[in-house]
Amino acid sequence: MTAFLYLVVIILFAVSVWQMSKILSMSKAGEDSSTSQIANDKDNKINGKLMLGFVIFIYVLAFISFYKWSDVLLPDSASEHGVDIDQLWLISMIIIFIVGIITQWLLHYFAFKYSGKKGQRATFYADNDRLEFIWTVIPVIVLAGLIIYGLFTWSDIMNVDTEDDPLVIELYAYQFDWRARYAGDDNILGDANVRLIEGVNQLGLDASDPDAQDDIVVNELHLPVGRKILFKMRSQDVLHSAYMPHFRAQMNCVPGMVTQFSFTPTKTTEEMRLDDEIIAKVEHINSIRSEKNVARAIAGEEPLELYEFDYLLLCNKICGNTHYNMQMKIVVETEDEFNEWLSTQDNFATTMKN
């Protein structure tokens, strides 16, 4: 792949040099008409046909892409607010595609239909109040509608109603891993500071803060289905981004400050594994891995493990050389299963004693 990219760069550089040499030759005085680079009627006609061919090409390419790779899109949202996010995205894409298809066709078709001819002059309007009104007002109305819709959606998502008694969890990012901290029985996160990080105190919890004593630090995130979760996010070193694609959730983790995001999971991990789209994707991935394992067996290499769907917390910022490996498993389960799992985890006070 790297060799192919190098080849593309070399080709593009050669094309650029060639084009620059043509521009220089056009700037020379005394050039005879036989080598003139000025476009004539034939050139304009050819370029008009190429423009028409190109717009047909991009339409065909878009259709093939949707047909062939639509299965790589995310499945239905597994959070309450994700439905609103998907709806906003769908409406925006429909408008963009409709406008794009129409404007691209007009642009390329007009270049073909009205290609330049010697002695022919284009119709010129110094001003046209009606046209200017139309192409100003329509975009303003459409964009204002999308922006207002987006602001209302964002406001609904970001406003956390504390009366819902959300479960408070901290997501702590560092190069190159995640830790999660549960607020314990009091549902209040204790104070923490990166300057206090030492030994088993990986998140820098303040041992003198009573609220920190029952906090629970884990490397696998468990969430109860149907309950609102309030995530408090910190970063130890550089800018990270907590990205949970199946929940349509993303928020930056910024060094020196606490950011937050909340959502309510609506599907357990087991329910998601029974989704038809997920089943098809898992089967497709495992068929690829099975084929690769045949070759790996012949080469005496360890086989690839068969894939099983899990929710994941990813970092969506390029935060360093092993950024790609920064992820944490998320398990969504029933309230009883969550409470049973949480009861088996050591709190901060117990960890410090051990």
Rank of each mutant, 00 (worst) to 15 (best):
G82M: 01
Y67P: 01
S92Q: 11
Q260R: 09
N293H: 02
S27E: 09
Y172A: 06
L50T: 02
S79Q: 05
V238N: 06
G184L: 03
K118T: 15
A280C: 06
N193R: 05
L230M: 12
P210Q: 10
A3I: 13
G48V: 03
V200C: 06
E80T: 14
I46F: 03
I95C: 08
R179S: 08
F133Q: 11
R121C: 02
E277R: 15
D129Y: 02
Y114S: 07
G30V: 09
V282I: 14
G30Q: 06
N321Q: 13
E305Y: 01
G226A: 09
I216F: 01
R181V: 14
I10H: 01
V83E: 13
I94T: 07
V9S: 12
F261S: 07
P255R: 09
D214F: 00
E333H: 05
A29R: 12
W18M: 13
H240F: 07
V218S: 09
L24P: 00
E277M: 08
E302T: 15
D71V: 05
K329L: 10
G150K: 07
E80C: 08
N187F: 07
K45Q: 06
H246S: 09
Y109P: 01
T268S: 14
S262E: 03
D310L: 01
A126H: 11
V218Q: 08
G300S: 09
C253W: 00
E308L: 09
Q236L: 13
P139A: 08
L223V: 06
V282A: 13
I169V: 15
Q202E: 12
D71E: 12
L205G: 08
K281L: 03
S27L: 09
F112N: 15
I229W: 00
S155P: 00
V168A: 02
T153K: 10
D161S: 12
Y174T: 10
